[in-house]
Design a protein around this nucleic acid. Structure first.
Lengths: 345, 345
DNA sequence: AAAATATGTGCAATCGGTTTCATTGCAAAA
DNA sequence: TTTTGCAATGAAACCGATTGCACATATTTT
């Protein structure tokens, strides 16, 4: 609680005005080099540190960027955040991170908090069940830059950073078909979310393109949790030998499903070829290794943040309706290699 | 950029003073219920939101808690952070999160930023190579609550939240011995860090207790990355059949090591029993499933944050030298079941 | 009925930088 | 020598909420 030194203290000691001190510390061109060095030296001597509140209050700027994610503790999201933090930190911005825990209600509260906290910009990946978007309007109205990533919404003309989920879904399915699958189940998340809706679109596109008629009960909407994966395994077991392919929209669900299938004596890929999504480290560890779509999480975080910061610094005009699509690609591993694995069982 | 409404606007409209408005909005007891509801109604009508800068400036409090972690994108850390965020959010605190990327240099910069940002408190898990601690002294001097978790330092009389790493290391090693191992390699991280030093201590304790002489070259210090795990596998292969047990201080390293061992034709646990640490989801997925020490990450985050907030709110005196130790326990899975697995090979 | 005590509001200072608009001093131009 | 121009610095008004103290009513006590 020792009293902080302020620019007034520095000014008094040097018999200068606080205005000059402020300018010197901000490297204002109108101040002599000599005066500047005098002031910075004294500042160091007194252990001065700028009071951000005062500065923020005056300049109406926080140097803080808000991020709302569904959850912090998922491989994908923590990777994206790591990328964001790195870029933001280097650019001198602070990150306020909060998680919606997949609930719209909490997302609304978080958005409000960010708004009241006067963040300079907001980055959002929306929750599982979000279906109204008024809580973001305040940002639009106040022209606070708002960027969506991964799980985006088209409601507003905001910059969005995504991967090509249609392509990802298409390639995953197409690959299964190429491996000889004809009856491919698709396990996914809420179709309100672009990521899942688009992957489904890709899936259906691949089916159609190969003359396979899609049936409603090939599609299962779940919360994509590991438990959901285990439940799916049970279901698949009962329907046997209904399906020969399985495309799950998320690796952790796919992996737990594979584990349960294995226990049930169903062979992957022999009986059922499996493809996941995201390229979670789990995918490389499970046996057989999981074919999946690589998701460039860190790059997404870095690019989203960089784009935003460029915009905040005025070096780049973020056109309202910008869409940035990152490359993702299918990583083929053993879980889908039906053609080579026939002998396994 | 529309002009914000302030308490002055509300005051003017209602012909009251800003002081009254401020008090009403803060639920001050000296204001009539009638006046209060009048004011809150008008505030809502005008879309008022408090200006935190002004408030912070006046009250010298940010309602923000800083967190510095080695990295955001590790299972353990993202889980801890998820716990912290949850509690902080519920208590109305914001979290500023930054990562040191295991570098002391960045940790110093981050600490400085947190300090200048006037966080109300700071939570830290120190970087891999940190070996001087002056960057935290500023917090001590200014009596800003400083709490270490997981990777703690004894330098300061700060509250620390840890698990009993000695016990964890002891139980892991003891278990290997019970399973019949006599030559147990220990792969760990920097011994500057309590977590690794203590696990090593537990390891040696277990060896000593069972009359096994520890040899220097049983101990390998690495960065515990997956690559390190793969390298270890190669080394083990060369030394064969030097070791019959392996205790790795972290699951992701243990898992990648197991994968490489498997490829090299070394059977786990038949040839080599393996135990990891942390209970990463990977541990349950690898085959054989990895015996490991469960680490209550979410609880650690929640408890660290709750303790801190209680202290900030004055409801709990955090004695300077408080140490909170969370329970962790060995989870026995197949990777260490030597006694039952003899037949495998 | 007068005095003492509550009760509800307002005044004005304060928090610490930032910034506009002078002002001062000195050198170059007339 | 006087004027003009510019460079460096200062004075003071912000930014918006908080809060100690004063003050005016309203209520209770004597």
């Amino acid at each position: 609680m020792g009293k902080e030194t302020t620019i007034y203290d520095i000014a008094k000691e040097l018999k200068l005005s606080p205005a000059t001190v402020s300018r010197a510390l901000n490297d204002h061109p109108a101040i002599t080099l000599k005066t500047k060095s005098l002031i910075t030296t004294k500042a160091k001597e007194l252990g001065y540190r700028s009071n951000k509140f005062a500065s923020n209050l005056r300049r109406q700027k926080t140097n803080t960027i808000g991020v709302i994610v569904p959850r912090l503790n998922s491989y994908l999201m923590s990777t994206v955040l790591a990328g964001m933090e790195k870029v933001a930190n280097e650019a001198g911005y602070n990150l306020i991170i909060s998680q919606s825990l997949e609930s719209q209600k909490k997302e609304i509260v978080n958005a409000r908090t960010m708004f009241d906290g006067r963040v300079d910009a907001l980055l959002v990946s929306v929750a599982y069940d979000t279906d109204s978007y008024e809580h973001f309007e305040a940002f639009i109205n106040k022209k606070i830059p708002l960027v969506f990533f991964d799980r985006v919404i088209e409601q507003f003309d905001c910059t969005s950073i995504v991967i090509d989920n249609v392509k990802g879904g298409y390639e995953a399915t197409r690959h299964l078909i190429d491996e000889g699958c004809r009856r491919i189940m698709h396990v996914t998340g809420s179709l309100k979310r672009n990521v899942y809706a688009d992957r489904l679109r890709g899936y259906r596109l691949a089916l159609a393109e190969n003359g396979i008629a899609f049936e409603e009960d090939w599609l299962v909407v779940t919360d994509l949790s590991p438990e959901a994966g285990r439940k799916m395994a049970k279901k698949i077991q009962q329907l046997r030998p209904g399906f020969d392919g399985l495309f799950v929209a998320n690796d952790s669900c796919a992996v737990s499903c594979m584990g349960a299938l294995k226990q049930a004596g169903i062979s992957v890929p022999g009986d059922l070829a499996v493809v996941g999504f995201n390229d979670d480290p789990l995918a490389e560890v499970i046996e057989p290794q999981l074919t999946t779509v690589h998701y460039p999480g860190k790059e997404m975080g870095e690019i989203a943040m960089q784009t935003l910061i460029n915009h905040l610094n005025g070096s780049l005009n973020m056109h309202p309706a910008d869409l940035i699509v990152l490359r993702s690609e299918l990583i083929v591993r053993q879980s889908s290699r039906k053609s080579q694995a026939q002998g396994t069982l």
